[in-house]
Amino acid sequence: MDEPSPTIDPLTNQFGSLNDLSHELASLQDLAMRGSWRSILDKVSGARSLDLLTKPHDHLIYLSYNVLALTKLRRFSDASNELDSLHDFNSHHYKYETYPKLYHTRSGSMVPFSLRFINAQLPFKLGNRQEGLDRFYLLLNFIRQKIKDKGIHSLQESVKIWRKREVFVLHCLIGHHLGAKEFNVCLDLMRDLINHDYLDPVLVSKLGYIQMQIGDFEGAKGSFHRVETMLNERKNDDSSALSEVEFRNLVNRNKALVFLVGKDYVSAVREYEECMERDPADVVAVNNKALCLMYLRDLSDSIKVLENSLERVPTVALNETLVVNLCSMYELAYVNHSEIKRTLSNWIARVAPDDFDASCTRV
């Protein structure tokens, strides 16, 4: 967000609670963390109807949570209509200096970065890919201008935040181009970043993945080796938010991918098991280990891997890809798979967040 850090009061710049930033913000954040998106819609509606939002930035923060909740619940048209009510993000209505009595010496936009991001992402959900790409590139230009402006004023911490946003948006752009198999565009975007010393290990790993897609196997291995070297030297750029465990698991997953391409599933399983020993909530490792075991015709153990993950870390492991794969394995392994899937579906209904797509069980 363009507004202050969530632990600083935007009016006094003094440290305080989340609720100092906006009306019952801590409650909204807690509901979001639990995936209680319908409750957020109710809370926003209640705050608006009771006129509890007294400052301009209150309205924007609540609108952000409302748009996020609508998006999570796949109500994309409603989310888009809510965003359209703002008209122009750069309007003077959304600048701190327009309200000097409220915000004193603060200046700049009070529009949360999350709103700008959702605004770029929504067209993809509504089937308008080109508009989505246009908005993402506009957002990228906006971020780069912020970096340029803040760099001039030597606001180093602020520059770091915007550089992380730049890398995040570029990851999203690369993902959208990758989905359309526009590999050359992806490579150009990544090489531009890497040439500017953005040594983000996730980005370099993604470069290796794309090199594999276009048949440049040696180039891919070179990229993965570069990530391992970055881990060993711990020279990863501040734009990477990876912990050491996440970094090490990324290296293992890269190695596993090389083994997968060579159909060496036993070695791939070993790499994924190392990831799971460090972090049982590494869903990519869990899911891919199960798939490797299935390729090795060990369907029983493959199912156990996914079931154990759901039992041990349901809040993390409960994602739709993993559940789809588990249900596919049930269909292969059991004659009475419908009953087993129904049991899984009932369990999901009790523990899943509001935005989980229960239809993935194919009951």
Rank of each mutant, 00 (worst) to 15 (best):
K206E: 10
R253V: 03
E97S: 11
R34M: 10
A317C: 10
K55P: 00
N336T: 09
E182D: 15
L25Y: 14
Q29V: 04
T71Q: 15
R278Y: 00
E166S: 09
S240W: 03
Q213C: 12
V44N: 05
V266F: 13
K164N: 14
E339Y: 09
H23A: 04
L68I: 12
F168G: 06
D216K: 04
L53M: 09
M1N: 12
N141R: 14
A358D: 06
V323M: 04
R144G: 09
H57W: 11
A79F: 10
K164G: 14
L115D: 03
N81M: 06
L318P: 02
S64Y: 12
S17K: 12
K160V: 10
K95V: 05
D88N: 15
H87T: 03
S49H: 08
A26H: 07
M294N: 11
A285I: 01
N195S: 12
L41Q: 10
L173K: 07
R342E: 14
E277F: 01
H177I: 08
N336S: 12
V305L: 09
L73C: 09
R106D: 03
M33D: 14
L63G: 01
L155Q: 15
Q211F: 02
G222K: 06
F76C: 04
N319E: 06
S359M: 10
D200M: 12
L306N: 01
I8F: 10
T105M: 15
S205E: 07
L63N: 03
S39Q: 11
R297Q: 15
N319P: 02
R34H: 13
N195A: 11
G208V: 05
E182N: 15
V202N: 11
F356R: 10
V227I: 11
Y198T: 09
T105F: 15
S302Q: 07
V266Y: 12
L53D: 02
S243C: 05
Q29W: 04
F89W: 04
A352I: 08
F259H: 15
E233L: 08
K72W: 01
F113L: 05
T7N: 13
V245F: 01
P4S: 07
F183L: 04
E157C: 00
